[in-house]
Amino acid sequence: MKRLFTVLCSLLAALGLAACDHFNLKELEPGVSTAADVRQRFGPPQMEWYNDDGSVTWEYSRQPMGTECFMMTIGADSVLRRVDQVLNENSFARIQRGMSGDEVRRILGAPGTRERFDLAKETVWGWRVGKEASGDPVFFLVHFNDDGRVARTSRFVELRG
């Protein structure tokens, strides 16, 4: 029965559904699980980031409707080294004025939204990061100037009345 559930979760994860992330993460163990284990449970990564030490970090964003983005670092030996859920206060604090879009994506993963505001002369990327006590979704926003550099960050609560 456990095997059937694992296969079902893997199939749903491959389709981009995050419902089984919790169970899939419990099956992965840094230092033991392999790159093949990660792919079996989460499917192909949305982005691969190559690191100076020969490792690669795979991005699994659950945007636009989810509130998580997993960065899974695979060592040069194809063994899982770490799993980080990066949509958190520590990662938000790393976003600094002057960063490029690539630098921001490397930290937070793919945004759920990208909007251009011509009057403000800025492009805003947004990540759904949680909910208020009322159930209204909360977004972390990164505002880019016309040079494609971070101008500021903010938060937004989508009031659903």
Rank of each mutant, 00 (worst) to 15 (best):
M1G: 15
M1Q: 15
M1W: 14
L4P: 03
T6W: 10
V7S: 13
C9F: 07
L11N: 13
L11D: 11
L11M: 12
A18L: 00
C20L: 04
D21E: 10
H22R: 11
N24L: 08
E27L: 12
L28F: 15
G31N: 08
S33E: 05
S33A: 06
S33F: 03
T34V: 05
T34I: 05
T34A: 02
A36R: 13
A36W: 09
F42A: 06
P44V: 04
P44I: 01
P44R: 05
M47C: 04
Y50K: 04
D52P: 12
D53A: 03
T57G: 09
Y60R: 13
S61H: 05
R62N: 15
P64A: 06
G66T: 04
C69S: 14
G75R: 11
A76V: 13
A76Y: 15
S78Y: 12
L80M: 14
L80A: 14
R82K: 10
R82W: 09
V86W: 06
L87Y: 07
L87K: 05
E89F: 06
N90R: 10
S91V: 09
S91L: 09
F92L: 08
F92T: 08
A93T: 14
A93Q: 15
M99V: 00
M99W: 07
M99C: 03
S100V: 05
E103G: 13
E103A: 13
E103L: 07
V104N: 10
R105G: 07
I107V: 04
G112V: 01
T113L: 03
R114Y: 10
R116H: 10
F117V: 13
D118K: 00
D118P: 03
L119W: 10
E122F: 14
T123Y: 08
V124D: 12
W125G: 00
W125H: 03
G130C: 06
G130W: 05
K131C: 13
E132T: 03
S134E: 06
D136Q: 01
D136H: 01
V138Y: 02
F139I: 01
F140D: 00
V142I: 09
H143Y: 15
H143K: 14
F144A: 08
D146H: 09
D147H: 01
V150T: 07
V150Y: 09
A151K: 08
R152V: 05
R152P: 12
T153Y: 15
T153I: 12
S154Q: 02
V157L: 01
V157S: 04
L159V: 01
